[in-house]
Structure formats: structure tokens, C-alpha cells
Amino acid sequence: MIELFGITFDYTLRNVVFGAAILGIVGGVIGCLAVLRQQSLLSDAVSHAALPGICVAFLATGVRSTPILMAGAAVTGLLGALLVLGLVRSTRLREDAALGIVLSTFFGFGTVLLTRISRTGDADQAGLSSFLFGQAASLVATDVVAMAVLGTITLVVVAVAFKEFKASTFDPGFAASIGLPVTGLSILLTLLIVSAIVIGLQAVGVILMVTVLVAPALAARQWTTDLGRMMILAGFLGGASGITGALLSATVSRLPTGPTIVLIASAIVIVSVLFAPGRGVAWGAAERRRTGRRVRAEWADRAERHQLPGGNDHLAPQSSGRLPAPVAEGSGR
């Protein structure tokens, strides 16, 4: 048994830490593509839609085996995603309405099944209700292995088709014109999103899983302007959130792992949105103040030279009859 920083890395904690790291890394990387394609809500619908799949898989087999439950989750999650796409294509429903309907219907169905199972007394024994908010402590070594295998496959697919995903996300019309299978890539990405969600369900749960995908991507986007670096950084931030959350909940009593991971990831987003150079809120405010001071100083100077009446405090560039020369380029946005 290893001891580090006063924390005993027993069998359970080792599984939790590895599991949380895997779900954070995979969620962060895949989340970048989901966020850039404006599919954050689709991810949320997929993860909620996974709940009935878990219940059905349990009812059908009667055993609480992680691979079987994962498969069930994947089936209904994917079904939910395809249903959203189908509704948007074949009806006049807008995407937000389709997402809302699919999310609530599937989740409602899942909750009904969960209640039915718990009436029979099997659910607590099976620990199915832990899939709502996740229960990292229930991870066993084979779960972690399954997560690692699925995670590796997911990351390899992204790495292999990186430039195709990039082109079809940035400019789908152009991508189709050079012969990329844009619809196929879209479906492939949906599969990857489902896979990332399935990896995290046991530890984080269907309700909070969307944060694992979206938060690291949003944070990473604040710090970099390159898709590849964004995905690496998001994977790192997601993994770090996972590990930190797992360790915190292991050392502080009555701290649930999944929600803690989600809160840490959210905190990273808040810090990034506020303080990242270039895109951060604080940076923008400082930039506006600098520009304001510069403009003011410049025009105060001109006003003095042209001896405008009223002094600096009543400066109005229009009143001098000389508007600032239009800046030719880069100002038109």
C-alpha cells in the first residue's frame, strides 16, 4: 500500500483516482469538439438518455455487471441522440425543443424504471440509483480497465481523424466539397460523445456528466487559439479535476466524488473566463480602460492644439469638425 501526502492509496482509492482521471481526460478531449459544434446540450441529452438503458440492461440480465450496464447506457444514449437529429430533420421542431423533449422523456422513463426496480428491493442492492449522481467508490478494478479500454479507443479515433474533424467542424460546406463524409463524421463524433459519457456515468452520474465534457473545453478555449492545444489542455484540465476531486473526497468526509469533480471543473471555468489573457473578462475590461485612456489623452491633446472651447472635460470630437480618421483595417468588426 502506498502513502502519499498522508493519503492511503488503498484498492478503492486507486480505482477512484484512475477512473476519475480517465473520465476527465476523455471527457475534456471529446468535449472540445462537442462545444465547438454547439452540441453541449446534445451531450446533456445523451447522458440523461443513458439512464433508461442502464435500467433496462439490469432488468434484462438481472446482474449488475459494468460492461452490460455500459452497453445499455450506450444504446439508449445513442438512440436519444439519433432521435434528436431525426426530429430536427423530419419535423419542424427546432433543435432546442427536440433536445428538451428527448432529454426529459428518456430521463423520465429511466426514473420510472429506477423506481420500479427499487420497489422490488433490487436497486439498492444493485446500486442503480447511484447512476444519478455517480458513486465513484463503487468502481472496481475491472470497471477501471473497461473505462481505460473504451477511453483509449475513443482518443485514438479522435487522433486519427483529427484534421477531418477539424475541417468538418470549422467549415462543413467546404469539407463536403473536398469529399469528406461530413454526415459520417458527425455520426462518428456522436458515437465518441456517447463513449465519453458512458465512461463517466458510474463515477459522475447522468445528471452531472455534461459538465465533464463541457467545462474543461470551455476553460481550455480561454487559454489557447489552436484546436490541437485546446484538446490537450482540456484533457489535462479534465484529468486534473478528476484526480483532485477523487483525492478531496477521499480525505474530507461526506464529500461525494462526482459532484466534487464537477465543482472543481466549474471553478476552473470561472477562473478561466474571468482571468485568461486575451479572452478573459478582466482582460477585456482592462483593455477597454487602456483604450479609453489612450483615446482621451490623444483627443485632449488635439483639442488643446485646436483650442477648442470648453476644455478637456467637454471634449466631443465632432465639435472640432475633425473626426478621427477611419482606421482602414481590423477595426471593422
Binding site: 465547438l36 484534421k163 477531418e164 475541417a167 470549422f170 467549415d171 460546406g173 469539407a175 473536398i178 469529399g179
Partner: peptide, 27 residues
């Protein structure tokens, strides 16, 4: 070579000018 309408893409996409141009050679 197809040049879509400029407004059809998200210009806040995390990429650089040369990276976009190199997409011309993906085909």
C-alpha cells in the same frame, strides 16, 4: 475549389490563418 460565404462559418474557431489555408490541401 469552393469558397463558401464568409458568414457561414464561426470565425471564433480556435485556429490560425495558415491552418485554415492548409485545409485547402486536405483533399
Amino acid at each position: 475549389a469552393y469558397v463558401p460565404q464568409r458568414s457561414s462559418v464561426d470565425w471564433d474557431f480556435p485556429t490560425t490563418a495558415i491552418d485554415v489555408v492548409m485545409m485547402g490541401q486536405y483533399g
